[in-house]
């Protein structure tokens, strides 16, 4: 009888213990659920899945200011870790994650507004300098990339957000509209305006 019990337990462990393969195949919500139950490897996978895109989303929204972006980035993940059990499967995990990031960015932009009159017009001198093309040393492609990045930073806040969400993440229009806290049509409109401006601003050599 005990042998059967041990066998049963072993089988149970085998069936419930998520293998590395199944973790990679699991969706974000399943990974978060596993992490909520103590599986830290699930969090590692989840983090690696969204790490870069989220970081770039924050970095661009902070006008490529690395130190501030890192600060916000850490705050976002700490928020996820501390409030993991508050996540409900009403929305996707990635939507929830970017909503947290957006709220953090708004908090930081409010603080920044107290220091500077216009957050949107404020572009770090360092960033502008770093984005300025140096024709002698860089290829045309590199110049075009840097120009595009600097133009993106100069887009109005909502259009910049729409453009970054579209290009740095892999969300659907509906999810992006949800993150931006707006309607589907408004979001598409913002995106269209952003693209038009960039088309207008970029030199013909880059297109």
């Amino acid at each position: 009888m005990w042998t059967q019990t041990i066998k049963l337990m072993t089988n149970t462990v085998d069936t419930i213990k998520p293998s590395s393969l199944s973790i990679k195949q699991a969706n974000d919500e399943e990974l978060l659920s596993l992490y909520c139950n103590g599986d830290t490897s699930a969090f590692d996978t989840l983090y690696n899945r969204h790490r870069d895109s989220l970081y770039r989303f924050i970095l661009r929204q902070n006008n490529n200011m690395t130190s501030l972006a890192e600060e916000v980035f850490q705050e976002v993940w700490m928020n996820v870790i501390n409030n993991k059990k508050q996540f409900r499967n009403e929305s996707k995990f990635s939507t929830w994650l970017y909503q947290i990031a957006r709220n953090k960015l708004i908090d930081h932009s409010r603080k920044a507004t107290t220091r500077k009159d216009n957050f949107h017009d404020c572009i770090d001198d360092e960033v502008i300098e770093s984005n300025n093309p140096q024709p002698d040393k860089k290829s045309q492609l590199e110049i075009c990339i840097e120009l595009l990045q600097s133009f993106v930073l100069q887009l109005p806040k909502e259009q910049k957000e729409a453009f970054i969400l579209k290009h740095d993440t892999e969300h659907s229009i509906d999810d992006m509209a949800l993150i931006a806290n707006t309607s589907h049509e408004t979001f598409k409109s913002r995106l269209r305006y952003a693209m038009k401006k960039l088309r207008d601003w970029l030199p013909g050599e880059c297109l």
Binding site: R51, R56, L59, E70, I145, L148, Q149, H167, M195, C206
Partner: peptide
């Protein structure tokens, strides 16, 4: 638009 997207993605290499 496709070229802009392609350019932007080529420049998006920042990681934490």
């Amino acid at each position: 638009d496709n070229k802009i997207s392609s350019l932007y993605k080529q420049g998006s290499i920042e990681t934490p």
